[in-house]
Amino acid sequence: MAYLKKSPWLLHYDASSCNGCDIEVLACLTPLYDVERFGIINTGNPKHADVFVITGGINEMNRQVVKNIYAQIPDPKVVVAVGVCATSGGVFRECYNIAGGVDQVIPVDVYVPGCAARPESIIDGIVTALGILEEKRTKMKEQEGSA
C-alpha cells in the first residue's frame, strides 16, 4: 500500500486486560509515534469508526459490550486484537472469569502479538488492517454493483 486513500478512524475498547496494551495504544497517538499524521484518529463513537482496536480478553461482563460496539460500527469494518490476552487470553487464560480471546465473540482480522504489545507492532497491525479494510470495501462495491 503506497499511500492511504482514506483517513481511517479507530475505536479502542479495553476488554479484560492489565491495561499495559491500552496505554501502548494511547502511546501510538502521542508525539513519538503520532499516527494522527496519517489521518488516523481515535474516536469515542462506534458509528464514526472503521477500525475496532481491542485489548484484553473477554469476560462475562464485557462479552455483550464488545458485541454491541462491534454491531454499531458500520460496514466495512476490521477488528484488530492487540496483545496476547486479546488473541488467546494470555497469562490469564486459565482464570475462571476469562472466556478467552476476542475471537470468542466477534470475528478478528488482525492479531497483534506481545505482552505488552509494542507501539511499533500495534501500528504495523493497524496498517495491515487498513489493507484488509480496502479489500472489504472493494468487495462490498462489487456486490452492490452486481445486485
Binding site: S16, N59, N62
Partner: peptide
C-alpha cells in the same frame, strides 16, 4: 465494576 475482572488471585493454585 467488574468489566476487567479476571480472577487472577486464584492463579496461585496453578
Amino acid at each position: 465494576i467488574g468489566y476487567v475482572h479476571r480472577g487472577l488471585e486464584t492463579l496461585v493454585e496453578k
